[in-house]
Every structure is written in C-alpha cells, then in structure tokens.
Design a protein around this nucleic acid. Sequence first.
DNA 1: GCGTTATTAAACCGTATGGTTCAGCAGGAC
DNA 2: GTCCTGCTGAACCATACGGTTTAATAACGC
Lengths: 117, 117
Amino acid sequence: MVQQDSARLDRLFHALSDPTRRAMLRQLADEERKIGDLARPFAMSFAAASKHVRVLESAGLVSRRVEGRAHICRIEAAPLAEAEAWLSFYAHFWSRRLDTLEALLQAEPHLPPPATE
Amino acid sequence: MVQQDSARLDRLFHALSDPTRRAMLRQLADEERKIGDLARPFAMSFAAASKHVRVLESAGLVSRRVEGRAHICRIEAAPLAEAEAWLSFYAHFWSRRLDTLEALLQAEPHLPPPATE
DNA sequence: GCGTTATTAAACCGTATGGTTCAGCAGGAC
DNA sequence: GTCCTGCTGAACCATACGGTTTAATAACGC
C-alpha cells in the first residue's frame, strides 16, 4: 500500500522534474492536444516528445485517446492532488515560521523596517 | 528569471522524486538530525546517504550547520511553497471538474445513476 | 493501389543517477 | 600523542534518462 503510494509519488515527482514535461502540462491546461501539437513548440524530435508524453502518462498526469491516427492527450490533474497532499504535511513547517515572524513583528512594532538594498 | 525558476523547480521536484529523500525529510520534520542519524534507518552506506543530503541541500530543502565534527541538518520547507504554488495553477483543474460534475448532478436529478458493474 | 501523416518501436549515444568502496581529514576522547 | 567518530571526496559500476536516427505500423486522401 504505502509502497505503492511511494512508487506513485516517485513517478509523479519525477514526471514534474523536467521542464519540457511541465511545459506540456501547461499546454494541456488550455485544451486537449495531439502529440504532434505537443511536440511542435520544442526543439526536439517527435520521438523524444512522444517519450515525454509516456512519462506523463505513467505518472497518471495525462490520458490519451486514439482518434484515427491521432493520439489526443488530455490533462489528468487529479494526481497533483496527491502531490499537494504530500506537500501539505510539511506546510505547517513554513507557515509556522511565518507566523512566528509575524508574531515577533507585532510584538515589537518599534523595530525599524529591514533595509532594502 | 523564469529560467532560474525552472531550474529550481527541476531540482526541487527531482529531490522529491526519491523515496529515501522523502523519508529523510519526514525524519527532519520531527527534529534536526546529524547526517549519521539520517543515514541509519536506511540499508545503504553512509556515503550514499550523504549524497542524498546534498541533493536535498541543492534543492534548498535542507540546510546544514557544522558543529564540531557533526553536520546537523534542518528542514527548510519554504521551497515547498514554490512547488505548491506551481501545483496550485492546476488546482482549479481538478476542482473545476468536480464542480462541473456536481452542477450536472444537481441540474438533472432525474438522470438514472450510472450502472455499477 | 500509392503517398502522406501521426505515431510507436528499436537501437544507439552521452550523461546523470544511485549505489559501492576506499582513502583522507578534522574533532573529540583518552 | 593515539584512537575512534563523523563526514567528505574520488574512483568506480550498473542502470536510467533524455536525446538522436531509422524503421515499422496504421489511418487518411487520392
């Protein structure tokens, strides 16, 4: 179970760790695209783009439907919720610090503002 | 600028894509740890664990302070906020779908429920 | 049929990754 | 000083990654 989750998170974060793949997701956020359309903006071969799509697919971030000879991709953002859930575990960690900072600032309003250089 | 952000996201997501490193962060969420303490739970050499810490460090997720011969690591969760900001761009994507589904269900309550096979 | 289009598959290449081992070095204990 | 501890660095290895090119497959236009 946990091991499965872990492997899914591996794939998910790995898929997101590449700028090309993030850009593809960005494209897919606008509308569904054929793989060829996804590939076009990037200075890389068709085959390379196709591989990227597969990585996104194996992470569950993209689903594909075949229409004739075209493979049409759609974003499946739900897995990102899993990533967000993971991150949220640590969220208190930075927000707590900000809270502390805020509390400090409110407690000592006489402090000079930080110099901006 | 954007390029810098992109490279930072690369490092960040890549750092998170390894289960060992995520487990290390989990440990550090409890309290600061020496690298040796971080390494102990894992069936790997000290050197390997040390490398993992460096990956976390280069992603900005961990900071280190040297005390005598011990290197003490602390979690720096702030970069995760950047990841969360990135994810949040796509957040409407899954929530919107749920909204749409809900709206559909409410608008047409006469529809038969989907068959469950 | 024939050619073009959209895509995958396979083989390859250079580099990065995650791991090892062994040597080295600095800090504390004695 | 000597010895252990905590850590890094360097060399190495197998595998994975991101890219290429070429070949193969399948669907559409004619």
